[in-house]
Design a protein around this nucleic acid. Structure first.
Lengths: 142, 142
DNA sequence: TATTGTTATACTCTATAACTATA
DNA sequence: TATAGTTATAGAGTATAACAATA
């Protein structure tokens, strides 16, 4: 039954998503972060990002992002840096303390997910990564 | 490089999760529901569920669940039904209107995810579903 | 006493609309 | 005028702790 197969894959995606969501909840909590803060800090481990791009990546309204950044800036985990070439804009970057927490959180998320997939043969894991990347990329350009 | 492969799969899982999360955001919004409400209503399409089991499945504190159910009950999308065999407990079930919205939301989520995976050959899709189910199940018994 | 669920409280998260500063 | 970001406001989501009702 073709329909049955399709329903199963959608359900599998939903269930897996639920699991990964809670990997973020748990990793965040272990580092005294909300899941949203954990996600933000993990993103920033690749380097400073502008507010506009952050809002796009996180799919948040700019005002929602302002508040999210406010709360982690208040805890001195990130700082806003004015863009000198366009003084309306600013970059968000990790502080020293923020980097420590961000890396610890990112490592914990990665370790948990790696453990989750440890049973898969290497070949399967490689193929799985490729397929999932393709699915995620196909939709991100919405 | 083995490490590189592992990092990629973890990253792929995170990115895919982000996409699926927003499928729920969008499907919920189209039906005037928050993502959490959409998730709750979709679960209830399989039939009434007790508060204790709902809290476990959604991984919420019982007080958080009380509030979530309050807000959809206030909109008459669900109702609480006392369990006659244990009068401390109650079941949560969809109302007629709630069923309509829940099914519409569930269908939209499923349709979007099916569209996302439509390019995959049937064989690949079947195998993917099996692998993802296994990953999700392995972790749910935490 | 133990368990099921609610209430009280304090935050965080989010969107919409109005605003400020810069371009 | 247009754009980048903030502020004001309102409501939803969440956890902890204390509570009520039932077992």
């Amino acid at each position: 039954m073709l329909v049955g197969v399709e329903v199963d894959l959608a359900t599998a995606l939903v269930r897996l998503t639920h699991v990964v969501d809670h990997v973020f909840v748990d990793a965040g909590r272990a580092n005294d972060l909300t899941p949203q803060q954990a996600q933000l800090l993990c993103l920033l481990t690749d380097g400073p990002i502008g507010m506009a791009e952050l809002a796009k990546v996180l799919r948040l309204e700019k005002s929602s992002l302002s508040g999210l950044v406010d709360r982690v800036e208040r805890r001195e985990l990130v700082r806003r840096v004015r863009d000198e070439s366009d003084r309306r804009a600013c970059w968000v970057e990790l502080t020293g303390q923020g980097t420590k927490i961000a890396v610890a959180t990112h490592d914990e998320v990665t370790a948990t997910l790696d453990a989750l997939t440890a049973d898969l043969p290497t070949v399967e894991r490689t193929r799985l990564a490729a397929v999932l990347f393709r699915l995620a990329s196909a939709h991100s350009g919405r």
